[in-house]
Design a protein around this nucleic acid. Structure first.
Length: 590
RNA sequence: GCCCCUGUAGCUUAAUGGAUAGAGCGCUGGGCUUCGGACCCAGUAGUGCAAGUUCAACUCUUGCCAGGGGCACCA
């Protein structure tokens, strides 16, 4: 359907240009317009407001314009069109021939896990900075968002033909380590750094900030230790190494549970060796200034506050290390897009960073055309009292939520007929898959920018608009297909079948299936996996109704049965392909 | 104080300026004769307030109200 949509757009443009050439319309500039899916199927399969948009510049009423365009389009004899109608407001409504939809599901049957094959972006590269947790803290639900959404976008771009590169920008450097090391030495009490667990380190970190509130001098102590670390004090560095090791082990455990792989894990500490070079470049380009002993960038053209690159004690900041990371990525991958999946709280910081890149002109040097920087800002997880903060010790730990979700899934699973005789071990395994999909989907289904007030109940809800609902729908569809031995109808030429067998309701479902391609493109354009989620949930609802109302395997009419099977197959395939993008698992039974 | 983001049904939310604001949870009522009931059907209620722009406003502009985030040595 996406193909037809693009063609229609072109044909409309052509028509207007012809009208202008024939002096029927004046020589105005054609504004950007789109071809959309109408809200209701009775308005056709595509709709365009082009005539209404044009009525002002063309100085003609919309209906008249619509008729002019309609006439031109009719002359073009577009083969996939059944008819075009004009609404009283002046919308052009397009009705496609039924064969178009049958051809599309035939494509699904042919292309299967590769559907829809879109080879548009073959030579483009995107670098996605996601997850990026801070070392020495446990993995909170805050990082969960970045990890899950970032990974879905990574998959989406890969699916659409991009060279997709995931970069886990570990927060393994900074004053926080000075703070933590000070806290360990002062209050930790253990002889060997290896004896600490990540939760104990987190507690020490919280203690540091509590004590620092009472006594501001403690902050200075932290800074001193970071100074020692950055000046390569071997004893301090040894402690740091152990903390990093411990944290990485913890994070990898969580990535494994979540079934997430990130191509590169490069810590901030890695970029330290490039900072001198960056400072030099900044100085040469006259971007750097000195203020109160620190090296800063002033943003003259924007109203941003200045950014600190080197603190007055000579130690580096996040900003400087991030600039180094950007240059490294640009040189190494020459990406068309660098996407940061980072919380909204860093919105100003990101703007400063991107502005600095512009001042350095880095965005124009490395990629073929230009590198586009984008901060995909996700909203915060809030607890009822406000922001969840490690410093204040209000972190919600992922493991706890996960365990509760698994418990919940097990409860329902124990009632399931499919697992009546299954061993406890298998049930546990499946419950885990369900729980993780539930948590992931709970995060993905909403617009990334929304703040989420953390609600365990909602997260654990396994009914309605949830991961398990989608998994269940797919299990059902697959179950039917299995019984039908769908591969045997491999060679059926569906196109020769009569689509009029289908009821109107079934045909709407068929049309819904054909929107998938467009949905993927929209999701990509907005960096929003929730567009896919909305679509597959809607599709699942419609399928479940179809499943309830119409017999598939038990249908006696041979042609109709095959058509319905093909619809079932298409939906299963779309769900599977979407699951792959979103990171949800496909279950055999549940 | 300044800057940014967000206000849609009891709760969680969807809707490139477009036609009748779409769902889920909850609640009320109904459906195991069918291919899997973690399902389906029906009912319930909604755009914070006030102006403006527009043929058309949840969407754009301004003001107000409410919530969240940020604002130089944290990341």
């Amino acid at each position: 359907m996406e193909v037809q949509r693009q063609i229609l757009k072109e044909k409309i443009k052509e028509s207007i240009l012809e009208l202008q050439k024939e002096k029927i319309l004046s020589d105005f500039f054609i504004p950007n317009f789109d071809i959309n899916f109408p809200v209701f199927f009775q308005y056709g399969d595509f709709t365009s407001n082009i005539a209404i948009l044009l009525s002002k510049v063309a100085q003609k009423p919309p209906i008249g314009l619509a008729n002019l365009i309609l006439e031109k389009l009719n002359n073009k004899k577009i083969n996939f069109l059944e008819k075009i109608e004009i609404s009283p407001q002046g919308f052009l409504n397009f009705f496609l021939k039924k064969e178009v939809f049958l051809e599309e599901i035939n494509n699904i049957f042919k292309e299967k896990e590769r559907y829809p094959r879109i080879i548009l972006n073959k030579k483009k590269t995107i670098v996605i900075d996601y997850s990026s947790p801070n070392i020495a803290k446990s993995f909170g639900i805050g990082h969960l968002r970045s990890t899950i959404i970032g990974h879905a976008i990574y998959n989406l771009f890969k699916f659409l033909g991009y060279k997709s590169i995931g970069d886990n920008h570990l927060g393994d450097w900074g004053t926080q380590f000075g703070n933590l090391i000070f806290a360990i030495l002062k209050w930790g009490g253990k002889k060997n750094i290896k004896e600490y667990t990540i939760y104990e380190l987190e507690k020490l970190y919280v203690k540091f900030h509590k004590e620092a509130q009472k006594n501001p001098k403690i902050k200075e102590e932290g800074r001193k230790y970071f100074f020692k670390l950055e000046k390569r004090d071997e004893k301090i560095k040894q402690i740091w190494r152990e903390i990093v090791k411990l944290s990485l082990k913890e994070f990898n455990k969580i990535y494994k549970i979540l079934d997430i792989k990130i191509d590169f894990t490069i810590g901030e500490s890695f970029y330290l060796k490039f900072t001198k070079e960056i400072i030099k470049e900044l100085q040469e380009k006259g971007i750097l200034s000195k203020s109160e002993g620190a090296l800063i960038i002033k943003f003259k053209e924007k109203e941003f506050p200045p950014a600190i690159l080197v603190k007055s004690d000579g130690t580096s900041t996040y900003f400087l290390r991030d600039l180094a990371a950007i240059k490294y990525r640009l040189k190494k991958w020459k990406p068309d897009i660098i996407l940061y999946e980072v919380g909204a709280e860093q919105s100003l910081y990101m703007k400063q960073l991107f502005e600095a890149v512009k001042m350095l002109k880095w965005d124009k040097i490395y990629a073929k055309k230009e590198t586009y920087f984008f901060h995909l800002s996700h909203g915060l997880y809030l607890s009822k009292g406000g922001k969840i903060s490690t410093r204040q010790g209000t972190t919600i730990h992922l493991e706890k939520i996960l365990n509760k979700a698994i418990q919940e899934a097990k409860k329902i699973l124990s009632k399931s007929k499919a697992y009546k005789n299954a061993s406890e071990k298998i049930k546990e395994k499946v419950a885990k898959k369900i729980a993780i999909s539930a948590i992931k989907y709970n995060d993905l289904r909403e617009n990334p920018q929304n703040n989420i007030i953390f609600d365990l109940k909602k997260c654990l809800n396994l009914k309605g608009n949830s991961g398990p609902y989608l998994q269940y729908t797919l299990v059902r569809a697959n179950s039917v297909l299995k019984k039908a031995k769908i591969n045997r109808i491999n060679k059926i030429k569906i196109l020769s079948k009569n689509p009029n067998f289908l009821s109107e309701e079934e045909f709407y479902l068929l049309k819904e299936i054909c929107k998938f391609r467009t949905i993927l493109l929209k999701s990509q354009e907005k960096f929003s996996p929730n567009i896919i989620c909305n679509y597959i949930f809607n599709l699942s609802q419609k399928f479940n109704l179809f499943y309830e109302r119409y017999p598939i395997l038990n249908e006696k009419n041979d042609d109709l049965r095959k058509l319905r099977l093909l619809i079932t197959f298409s939906i299963a395939q779309i769900l599977k392909n979407s699951f792959k993008i979103l990171g949800l698992s496909v279950l055999e039974k549940m």
